[in-house]
């Protein structure tokens, strides 16, 4: 999942969170998660003064963003003291799965 300015949103991206007016965390969403963005929809969101949206995967790359490989290396390092513990290792594997799913080539969409 990535938070991007609406200006960087393009048709085909998938919303990862509900979009609310004025970035308000409560109230009625104006557009639901899992919606595939289209040019018209992006323009409408712009008219509603929405400035940022959360999209699936990691479609927009900026300088300094870490790749999946880099994130996995860091994850590995954080778990380096507990690799021999079966329970903690299980949780490690869940984090690896999670990262792969949210950053994966599938655009981060979960296979359901």
């Amino acid at each position: 999942m990535q938070k991007i300015p609406l200006m960087r949103a393009t048709a085909g991206m998938v919303l990862a969170r509900d979009v609310f007016r004025n970035d308000s965390p409560v109230g009625m969403p104006v557009c639901g998660r899992h919606t595939v963005l289209s040019d018209t929809l992006i323009a409408r969101l712009g008219n509603l003064n929405v400035t940022t949206v959360y999209v699936e995967g990691h479609p927009v790359w900026e300088d300094g963003d870490r790749s999946l490989e880099e994130m996995l290396v860091e994850l590995d390092r954080r778990f380096e003291k507990v690799r021999n513990d079966p329970l903690t290792l299980k949780v490690y594997e869940m984090f690896v799965d999670h990262l792969k799913r949210s950053m994966g080539d599938s655009g981060g969409q979960q296979a359901e």
């Binding site: 778990f79 513990d85 329970l87």
Partner: peptide, 12 residues
Amino acid sequence: DCYVPQIQQIAW
């Protein structure tokens, strides 16, 4: 520190 602590079985 950046190290994940061992998750204790008893907590689980």
